[in-house]
């Protein structure tokens, strides 16, 4: 089954995948255990699991014949990176605006 590449928000925008992350938050589970919680086919569950893994939300470890899913931190770091980017972005832009307005007062406005 082809696994689409989704961004972090699309990944957790899906209710089934959110539920999977919530279940895994309580501890790691096998894909079979996970599938027991959903009213969907096993391949459908596997596809969601694969999407979560590709996006860095979970990791899959083979233990014997079972595949264990565990939460992983990378997916969440991406969202944090966006917000941190915008925070710095606005600060530098507003400083630029301040510079512009300061220059304006020098050249365009009469002295008080």
């Amino acid at each position: 089954m082809a696994i689409p590449t989704l961004d972090v928000f699309q990944v957790i925008g899906d209710p089934s995948r959110r539920k999977m992350l919530m279940l895994l938050f309580a501890g790691s589970m096998t894909i079979n255990n996970l599938a027991d919680n959903f009213d969907m086919s096993r391949p459908a569950v596997s596809k969601h699991v694969k999407i979560l893994e590709t996006a860095g939300f979970i990791s899959i470890t083979d233990v014997g014949r079972e595949r264990y899913c565990s939460l992983k931190k990378d997916g969440f770091d991406e969202m944090k990176a966006w917000i941190s980017y915008f925070d710095k972005f606005w600060l530098s832009k507003l400083q630029k605006l301040e510079d512009l307005l300061n220059n304006k007062s020098l050249f365009d406005e009469p002295e008080k």
Binding site: F25, F76, L94
Partner: peptide, 21 residues
């Protein structure tokens, strides 16, 4: 001048994120 940049993603996603963090 006040700037507020908000509403990143959907609300439930953020709650999800905070909950998981």
């Amino acid at each position: 001048l006040h700037l507020e940049h908000t509403g990143f993603a959907k609300k439930e996603n953020l709650e999800m994120y905070n909950g998981l963090l």
